[in-house]
């Protein structure tokens, strides 16, 4: 357990330092997210009556498509100079490599989402500053990052990863997108924990299954 924590901490630290210097992932997620929000803001004539209905969908469309952009590039960084071979040549288990990549992905996606939330609130005049909404965002982002990291490793080895990644990722995350959109909508309209806990349960079960499955199958994605 101590080895796992040390290995994961080392690899996440490396990802954070590299990201802090090149700013590729967070910048691309954030830029794309802001563009989507601005386009929605201009394209839809949102009256106060329908804004509460549409806001959760707009929010999660923004998160999923901007997140996809970051996920597609996740292992590209490791292909430059073939550093993925450096990782594979170390005595670190493949599961630890997966866990560290999933944590880094979660952090980069979550940081971008935290920056997007105030902008969303300003553009659509809908407050998202609610602990329940934050809990839903954190849990859903864990699901995105855990299964997204796995699919990103597969898509990186294909010639058309920009097409392959959404084709693999989007159908699988549909259940948690539905759960996230519905529970966000309920909270925005004044609902509480009792109204959303079944949806949150679904997201948690998805997170657990996707982490376990990805850890078990990750080694196969790295095979030649």
């Amino acid at each position: 357990m101590r080895t796992l924590l040390k290995d994961v901490k080392t690899m996440v630290w490396k990802d954070i330092v590299a990201e802090a210097r090149n700013k590729e992932m967070v910048t691309s997620i954030l830029t794309f997210a802001i563009l989507i929000l601005v386009i929605f803001n201009f394209a839809l004539r949102l009256t106060p009556q329908i804004i509460l209905e549409l806001a959760p969908g707009i929010l999660w469309i923004t998160f999923i498509f901007s997140g996809l952009l970051g996920l597609t590039r996740l292992f590209v960084v490791e292909q430059e100079n073939n550093t993925i071979h450096g990782l594979l040549l170390s005595p670190v288990s493949r599961e630890n490599i997966y866990v560290s990549k999933a944590i880094s992905t979660f952090l980069f996606m979550f940081v971008s989402e935290i920056i997007v939330i105030p902008l969303f609130s300003i553009l659509f005049n809908v407050s998202l500053f609610n602990l329940l909404i934050f809990a839903v965002i954190i849990l859903t982002t864990i699901g995105f990052a855990s299964i997204g990291t796995f699919f990103s490793a597969i898509a990186t080895n294909t010639k058309s990863r920009e097409i392959m990644m959404p084709m693999l990722f989007v159908p699988i995350v549909v259940p948690i997108i539905i759960a996230a959109v519905i529970s966000t909508g309920i909270v925005i309209q004044g609902g509480g924990w009792d109204d959303i806990y079944k949806w949150v349960q679904l997201i948690v079960v998805f997170d657990i299954l996707s982490v376990v499955f990805s850890m078990l199958a990750f080694e196969q994605t790295l095979q030649e």
């Binding site: 040390k6 290995d7 080392t10 690899m11 490396k14 330092v17 590299a18 210097r21 090149n22 430059e80 100079n81 073939n82 550093t83 071979h85 450096g86 990782l87 040549l89 170390s90 005595p91 670190v92």
Partner: peptide, 30 residues
């Protein structure tokens, strides 16, 4: 993997990190 050191055509170094940071990274993983 603990018994072997490998050099290939690829450097296996992270461009955005310094040489020292790269060595610290790999050294910690070993």
């Amino acid at each position: 993997r603990r018994n072997i050191g490998v050099i290939t055509h690829d450097m296996m170094l992270y461009g955005h990190l310094t040489g020292l940071e790269n060595l610290l990274f790999y050294g910690t993983l070993f």
